[in-house]
Design a binder for these strands. Structure first.
Lengths: 278, 278
DNA sequence: TTGCTCCTCACGTCACGTGAGGTGGC
DNA sequence: TTGCTCCTCACGTCACGTGAGGTGGC
């Protein structure tokens, strides 16, 4: 026979655990000294201990293990129990996998944002943009209310969304109140519905400037890009665009000082219908 | 502002959970009525609630969520936290997979045993067996001590074992005490070591009988198979074999009445060195 | 009065682990 | 005496859920 300490070393179960299993009636010592209360286990208990450890490894609760041990005689439904457990484990694996997938998305978005941040130049530049299919909600009021528009598009288009949120400014001037703007997002597919229009934004020659920092600080960046356009003698084609490369996110709320917004202004080199003369 | 019930419906968190998060300082109501103690939440709290729910979905403990919420400003190490979590989840998935694998083995063994049981005929038959590579421990004493021999082979050969445990009887007579027998198991590979021999059992013509039930009940089956051999005029070649198709298992201890043992006796049709004359 | 929403307080869950305080024999 | 092994008893863990008992306004 073994003392509890020896038995613990043999089975790999802690002394505390063995006492607990005794208390629960799961693994009762072969004899208990009346005077000292010492527990003694004989070798036949080793297998029971192993079975319990194995089933605990399958995350069976102790009371179920007790039941299994008790009617080990008819193993008829033991097969069922095991197969049910197997199914449950597979189900949790599937859930975990889903979780990992959503984490991966989160992480890749965040890393992309950091990459952008690292490579961004904060000087005015010129480029050519391609036509872009978007879903948009035309809004009137304060810019700060645009969130509602994005939310509506998000709910409606879900996983058809194919790029960063943008805002279109349909007026040349900046207004604090009663502005005419459009919250929109690039989409792969989906149809117009309740106030959301789907259409193609034209491509073309484009002057860009990256703005880093909070949104109410964009005046300086606008002054800078407009100065450049005036100097070059370009004409701005409305609407102008803001692309929100990194803003307050779901988890990584981030610091407004790290927000990253690209201002895009399509331009014509010359022409008569200039809306805003450079 | 929303009452706790309304806020619960909006966020999907239970009222109890919301109160608990308040108590923990995780999600504090926007205001609390002094007189009634009623909690009121304004809409800005919805996002916090969603973030908490999301992180709980990743199984982050509450205190860590609290920390994350508090220093959401600098998201520097948030990436690390998330990636660590990702790694942990992947690790548990791997563990779970291992568990499923071992369950599958258990289940397939058990199903195999049941299939055997269903198809077994309990009549004497004749077959031809192939040579079989085995690891064996020669023992002397009581049959019931064979378990120790199997255990030694199991420890030594582990996953090289390629079949059901067997016992070889090196004497023609059955003895209760001081029997000369050999516990052995089919093996794919592995070398002889400390008392375990590895060799090839010869194949050949073989008379078989399936015995169902407890081991101390095998006398009748032996009488039956020996009766058959005598009637046919065969000679038995020693050692005779018992194959333990289903006995007390690790988990599915089963009922001794369902134990399944195949008795195999290699025979010669005629010859002079007969050990046991039919 | 009934029904609804809110409150607090105490206790339960699950499988142990921690730690205090004590014993008995070398 | 010190060190070791054993004991019991009470409490902690984690994220809530349960239930009792009560309030306040329609």
């Amino acid at each position: 026979v073994f003392s509890i300490g020896e038995f613990s070393r043999i089975t790999g179960l802690t002394v505390k655990t063995l006492r607990f299993y005794h208390e629960q009636g799961l693994l009762v010592p072969s004899c208990v000294d009346e005077g000292s209360g010492y527990r003694y286990y004989d070798p036949s208990k080793i297998e029971t201990a192993r079975v319990i450890a194995f089933l605990r490894g399958l995350d069976f609760p102790l009371d179920e293990i007790g039941r299994i041990l008790r009617d080990a005689g008819d193993d008829a439904d033991l097969l069922d129990v095991m197969e049910r457990r197997r199914g449950e484990i597979l189900a949790t694996i599937r859930r975990q996998r889903e979780v990992v997938r959503s984490l991966d998305e989160l992480l890749s978005r965040e890393k992309e944002a950091r990459r952008l941040m690292a490579n961004a130049t904060f000087e005015v530049g010129e480029t050519v943009v391609s036509p872009l299919r978007i879903a948009g909600v035309r809004m009137r009021g304060k810019y700060s209310q645009c969130g509602e528009g994005f939310a509506r598009i998000g709910r409606r288009f879900g996983r058809h969304i194919a790029g960063k949120p943008m805002m279109l400014h349909h007026e040349a001037e900046y207004r604090d109140e009663d502005a005419d703007y459009e919250a929109c997002m690039p989409v792969r597919a989906g149809e117009a519905a309740d106030g959301i229009t789907v259409r193609e934004l034209p491509g073309g020659r484009c002057v860009t400037l990256m703005h880093k920092g909070p949104y109410d600080d964009m005046g300086r960046s606008y002054a800078k890009i407009l100065g450049y356009i005036r100097q070059k003698g370009y004409e701005v084609v409305l609407p102008t665009r803001e692309v929100y490369l990194k803003g307050p996110g779901m988890i990584f709320r981030g610091n407004p000082r790290n927000y990253l917004t690209e201002i895009q202004m399509l331009v014509r080199d010359e022409g008569s219908q200039a809306v805003l003369k450079g």
